[in-house]
């Protein structure tokens, strides 16, 4: 008899402890990421964004759950489905373009849950899907301009993951930035075909250095390898996605930082008004979703600072188009 009471008591306690959307005003987000939340790159940028939102709204108003290092898409599908089915979260984020097909499927199945995914500009025509991207070509262009001013060997190396998405945008913007200063500077670009193969990325960086590069740059979470190679060979480093100041020591120059909180705050506000999706966001320097930061150890000259400020001003005003075709496409899509 006692055992039965105990079971009932446990059940009641569990039921009482379950979060319920109807009972409180807390906005709950669940976010899935392909790599670690401290990867100094893509996943960390989203984690930092969620943390910034929590700091802005307060823990009593905003809470989030994260599952990181989910590079196996099938595992991601299970987690996303569980979150959507639980009814505990107003917004489910799939932070990685590889999760797109899963989001499309789940969003149709759970029309009352808002989904967000990136980095792509595609909501699949669904009213409960937000998508997001970063105009990483802007930071790439900025870094390229500075790199062109700093290179002495006139050879610069870029290590990218896969030739798609914001990695490709960054590479194209970077190359254009260098060319805007001096088109005769060589920008050697290697896409290693992986977001996570640190050993191969490291060797790609070593290959750049062997071919004369005195400046390296790159995107995605495997850039910790190239940063280590740059440190070993005393070669300057330009980064993207998150600040890599902590790892890059005295060889870091500038980093493009994704401030996802800018779009998350707007998204949360819209979901609160009943708009569950159907829009896409692009982080830019103009909307302050992209921020350029210098490495703390880098001593920038007044001349180079003037160049940096002029470049940002030019991009924000539209006088500089890091990749002309992309800027035009974005403008057309915004009008649509």
């Amino acid at each position: 008899m006692k055992k039965r009471y105990l079971i009932i008591l446990v059940f009641l306690l569990a039921w009482a402890g379950m979060p319920s959307l109807a009972e409180d005003d807390v906005f709950r987000v669940a976010a899935l990421m392909p790599s670690a939340i401290n990867d100094l790159a893509f996943s960390q940028s989203m984690y930092d964004g969620l943390t910034a939102v929590q700091n802005a709204l307060g823990e009593e108003a905003f809470q989030f759950a994260v599952q990181d290092s989910t590079y196996i898409v099938d595992d991601a599908a299970v987690a996303l489905r569980d979150w959507a089915a639980s009814g505990d979260y107003q917004l489910v984020i799939a932070h990685g373009s590889q999760y797109g097909p899963i989001v499309e499927e789940l969003a149709s199945e759970f029309p009352d849950v808002s989904f967000a995914w990136g980095t792509r500009q595609d909501t699949f025509g669904l009213d409960n899907v937000y998508s997001y991207a970063a105009a990483s070509d802007e930071g790439g262009y900025f870094n390229g301009v500075l790199a062109a001013h700093l290179t002495e060997s006139r050879v610069i190396g870029l290590v990218g993951p896969i030739e798609v998405g914001d990695g490709k945008l960054y590479a194209d913007g970077f190359a254009n930035g260098v060319a805007s200063v001096d088109p005769d500077i060589d920008v050697n670009i290697v896409f290693i075909g992986s977001f996570s193969d640190v050993p191969l990325a490291t060797e790609a960086a070593e290959t750049h250095i062997a071919n004369g590069a005195d400046i390296l740059t790159g995107t995605a979470q495997m850039v910790v390898g190239p940063i280590a190679a740059a440190l070993e060979n005393d070669v300057r480093w330009f980064g993207s996605d998150s600040s890599q100041d902590e790892l890059s020591g005295d060889i870091g120059v500038a980093f493009q930082i994704y401030k996802w909180d800018v779009l998350l705050l707007d998204m949360i506000s819209k979901i609160g008004e009943g708009n569950l999706g159907g829009e896409y966001y692009v982080l830019t320097l103009a909307n302050e979703g992209l921020v350029m930061e210098f490495d703390q150890d880098f001593e920038i000259s007044d001349e180079l600072m003037a160049v940096a400020e002029a470049t940002i001003a030019g991009i924000v005003s539209g006088d500089i188009a890091p990749i002309p075709a992309v800027e035009e496409d974005m403008a057309e899509e915004s009008e649509d």
Binding site: S69, S196, G225
Partner: peptide
Amino acid sequence: LINLFQQNLTAGQ
């Protein structure tokens, strides 16, 4: 060779 550690560093080697 790399002088740091990151999750899944071996990448299937």
